[in-house]
Simulated assay, not measured.
Amino acid sequence: MKNLSILAAIGLSVAVLFSSCGASNTVKGGGIGAGAGGALGAGIGAIIGGGKGAAWGAGIGAVVGGSAGAIIGNKMDKQKAELERINGAQVESINDGQAIKVTFESGILFATNSSTLSSAAKSSLSSFATSLKNNPDTDVQIFGHTDNTGSDAINNPLSEKRAKAVYDYLVTNGIGGSRMTSEGQGSTQPVADNGTAAGRSQNRRVEVYILPNAKMIEDAQQGK
């Protein structure tokens, strides 16, 4: 029964996402009826977080739709435009426009088998920190990933160190640690073929999710 509920939520999520193709975050945020509710948010949250995103996904889903959803979508549209100007960052809307995913490739952030930030990475993350300061009503989740070269005993702590390196650098640039979390995923979530050098390069990455915090949600419900 539990699996059926999860599949139903995911099915609803996919249907809504495809029906919203081509729309701005503002339009998409307002276009989902309140009936979707927490199930929609939990379904999308579980997809993008490998199951770990369900908790915050449900929080977003509870306010998706109507004017509140449109307000959140509009704010995320504006921050997304800021982030797209950062060198080395791939930016996309998720959760039907009410959250943002930023992917930093390891070629930009780290040398192979290293968790030390390069000068170029620090420059990109400084710009990223500026955007976070300009948009304080968000929470940030940082996930480190590796390719499948080496064992879990190597990859898991390396991915954690990479995520923590980004977390620590953002803290030194004035971003409050209380609004951020960091976590390593090892090699468990590849986005490309580990059988090729190009694919492995894509899999060595850091992903950052920017989510509306409680204040943004409350303000949106009040029409702010």
Rank of each mutant, 00 (worst) to 15 (best):
K52C: 00
T116H: 06
E183S: 12
V102Q: 00
E218K: 14
A89S: 10
G150P: 05
Q185V: 04
I32G: 06
N203K: 09
M1R: 13
N213K: 09
V191S: 03
L4R: 07
K28H: 02
R162M: 03
V171Q: 13
G45Q: 11
L12K: 10
A129L: 07
A111Q: 10
L17M: 03
S126F: 01
S124F: 09
N74A: 14
G53N: 09
D152H: 05
M216A: 15
G53K: 07
G31E: 05
A68I: 03
D96V: 10
N135Q: 04
S24N: 08
G174I: 03
A111W: 01
E207T: 12
K215D: 14
L211Q: 06
K133M: 00
F110G: 08
Y209G: 01
N155I: 00
G61L: 04
A46Y: 06
G37D: 10
G65P: 07
Y167I: 02
Q202K: 14
N113Y: 03
H145T: 01
K78H: 01
A68N: 07
I6H: 07
M180N: 12
S24G: 11
K215C: 00
N194R: 05
P190Q: 03
I210V: 13
K28N: 12
S5A: 14
R205L: 14
T26F: 07
I142C: 07
A36V: 04
S93M: 11
S124C: 02
I47A: 12
K78F: 01
S118H: 06
V16Q: 11
E105I: 04
G45A: 12
V27K: 12
I71Y: 04
G22I: 10
F143I: 09
G144P: 10
I72K: 01
G88T: 05
I210S: 02
Q222M: 07
N3K: 12
P136M: 00
Q90S: 14
N87S: 15
S123T: 15
A89Q: 06
Y209V: 08
N134V: 02
A89F: 08
T103H: 01
